[in-house]
Design a binder for these strands. Structure first.
Length: 575
DNA sequence: GCCGTTTTCGGCCCGACTGTTTTCAGTCG
């Protein structure tokens, strides 16, 4: 999968062209890069099918360049640009406030080629001497270099959650703020967030901004105005706050929730009606000659709430998780949006570890915690043999676990039903667990925790020949750590469907695996389960993260097996 | 360089903030 690599190359090309002051091409390359980045299929497959030009934003010329790169591993156009301007453009523009134009000037005047050069130039005081720069610019660059080095990675949604909730609560409880909502990719529940975007109303914006920017937790103020401020809080997360007028809140919610592509599709829908949609509202500009004459030009026809605006555009309100421009606007126009699964629909958790492998709590402790969360049933799935971890079940611990599960189930004070399962390793020998364990287990969860040479074939054979009920964390990805198994998901998902095996949506923050784009693609044929893979009681609450990804994948309750009662779940498996 | 139920040529999203250049270019989202 070379999608990300190609996207990165095109982003760099865009920067180089911008430095050369070429008009419009930078935008074309950036659009192409964005669209390649968000493809759910391997661009090499698209190339093989000769369909590169069917990708939005890719025409003849860029398609040729993609093909050249895929066929030869080399892109002459890019290499020529780089030879001409040997700047490490990606690193340098990763410093906030430094874009292509600044990079060019620093290169021409100070011979800055790398991040290290940039750091030296700032430390030496050379940047402050340049025309158009001053001490403040130089200091900003210096301050943000460290941060750029650290913030290459986006924050996991699960890590951002407590931070977001705490800030949201703080602002909501403050007299300076009226309405407060976390928007942006957090509201859409993307698996990772680059920053947190907050939208608010306040009767005295300057007071609210003062309070926001001077809080103890704020480490740096990047920008501060009466409607918009940006800060960095301890831990390095950037928080952007936007204060808007109450009467324009709905328009602002849509605008700042995004995604950008969703907004463009909405805006185009507005244009089709002779209207204009921006962060201030939906305006009828059909009688206005100069649409660009102002932000609130024309007659305002909707702006107060999100439903007002969607209604006026003749669509139903769209859940934030769906706003990725993957057909949701057309579906809303046809009143065909899915009735998304909710956290409260979840009746069971089918992937849990206890002290019998590497969990921190006993079966009883997990059961009590799950009971408090209102679960009807849980499946204990400690590691079976061949999982690459020192803490796997053996004959003795398997039996002890069985005894403890029976005790907990006999305890009238614990309502949740505890099932015995296992998380078995799929190896090239298949599923090597003792025969009687199959008998004893209510359900078998299987996954891969290593990097086999041919995982697709391994999975296909295991699915076919062994009694597997759930395929855990299908790609074995760890976000920000390592990528996915080199797996042909088409084959895996089709085989899962044929063999009546559910595919897990793993709710651990660093996994969120299966990815939402594949969830959506296969939801008609494959049954999913959402499981937390908890290793301690505190992690049971990650269920909401998993459900959010199922929602991003357009899942309704029917698509997710563990929304069913225990009887119905077992009936699905014929048990 | 891409794109088109008004266009195959002539458009390309746009508003806020910063720093510094006394009127705006660059950057960001």
């Amino acid at each position: 999968m070379q999608n990300q690599e190609i996207a990165k190359t095109f982003y760099e090309i865009a920067d180089f062209l911008e430095i050369k002051e070429v008009e419009y091409k930078p935008r074309a390359y950036r659009t192409a890069a964005e669209n390649i980045e968000s493809l759910s299929t391997d661009i090499e497959d698209i190339h093989d099918r000769n369909e590169l030009e069917e990708i939005e934003g890719i025409g003849e010329s860029i398609a040729e360049k993609v093909a050249e790169y895929l066929d030869t591993g080399y892109l002459a156009y890019y290499e020529d640009l780089k030879a001409d301007l040997p700047i490490d453009i990606e690193a340098i523009t990763s410093v906030k406030g430094v874009g292509p134009k600044t990079a060019k000037k620093l290169y021409l005047e100070l011979d800055v080629l790398t991040l290290e050069d940039l750091e030296h130039a700032a430390e030496n005081g050379a940047i402050a001497e340049l025309e158009g720069f001053g001490k403040a610019s130089q200091q900003n660059i210096l301050d943000r270099i460290e941060w750029a080095k650290r913030s290459q990675e986006r924050m996991l949604l699960g890590r951002a959650f407590p931070i977001a909730r705490s800030i949201e609560t703080r602002l909501q409880n403050s007299d300076a703020f009226d309405r407060v909502d976390i928007v942006g990719s957090f509201r859409r529940r993307r698996p990772t967030v680059g920053d947190l975007d907050i939208l608010a109303t306040a009767s005295a914006p300057e007071v609210a901004m003062e309070e926001f920017c001077t809080h103890d937790n704020v480490k740096e103020v990047l920008a501060r105005g009466n409607t918009k401020s940006s800060v960095i809080v301890s831990g390095g997360l950037q928080i952007d706050l936007r204060i808007v007028d109450d009467s324009e809140y709905g328009a602002a919610l849509i605008y700042f929730t995004g995604s950008k592509d969703h907004n463009i599709t909405l805006r185009n829908r507005a244009i089709d009606h002779g209207w204009k949609l921006n962060e201030y509202g939906l305006f009828d500009v059909s009688d206005v000659d100069d649409v660009r004459g102002g932000q609130r030009v024309g007659k305002r026809i909707a702006s107060e709430t999100e439903p007002d605006i969607y209604d006026t555009l003749n669509t139903t309100w769209i859940q934030p998780e769906l706003r990725e421009d993957t057909g949701e606007v057309d579906a809303a126009a046809a009143s065909e949006l899915p009735d998304l699964v909710e956290r409260s629909d979840m009746k069971g958790d089918l992937h849990l570890h206890t002290k019998y492998s590497n969990g921190s709590h006993s079966v009883r402790e997990i059961a009590v915690a799950a009971d408090e969360l209102g679960m009807e049933y849980i499946l204990i799935t400690d590691y079976g043999p061949h999982v690459p971890t020192p803490h796997t079940l053996d004959a003795e611990t398997f039996d002890s676990q069985q005894t403890e599960i029976k005790e907990v189930n006999d305890d009238a004070d614990i309502a949740v039903t505890v099932l015995q399962g296992i998380e078995a390793e799929i190896t090239d020998e298949g599923l090597e667990i003792p025969e009687d364990w199959h008998e004893a287990c209510d359900l078998v969860v299987a996954g891969i925790h290593s990097q086999p040479s041919n995982p697709t074939e391994q999975v296909r054979i295991a699915f076919h020949e062994f009694p597997i009920d759930v395929f855990a964390h299908p790609t074995n990805r760890l976000i920000n750590e390592h990528g996915s198994l080199d797996l042909d998901l088409n084959v895996v998902m089709e085989t899962a469907s044929d063999e009546h095996i559910a595919v897990e949506i793993n709710a651990r923050p660093e996994r969120l695996d299966l990815d939402w784009q594949f969830i959506k693609e296969y939801r008609e044929t494959v049954h999913y389960v959402v499981s937390t893979d908890s290793h301690m009681t505190d992690e049971l609450d990650n269920m909401q993260l998993g459900v959010s990804q199922a929602r991003r994948g357009w899942c309704e309750t029917d698509n997710v097996l563990n929304t069913r009662s225990l009887d119905d779940l077992m009936a699905f498996y014929g048990k």
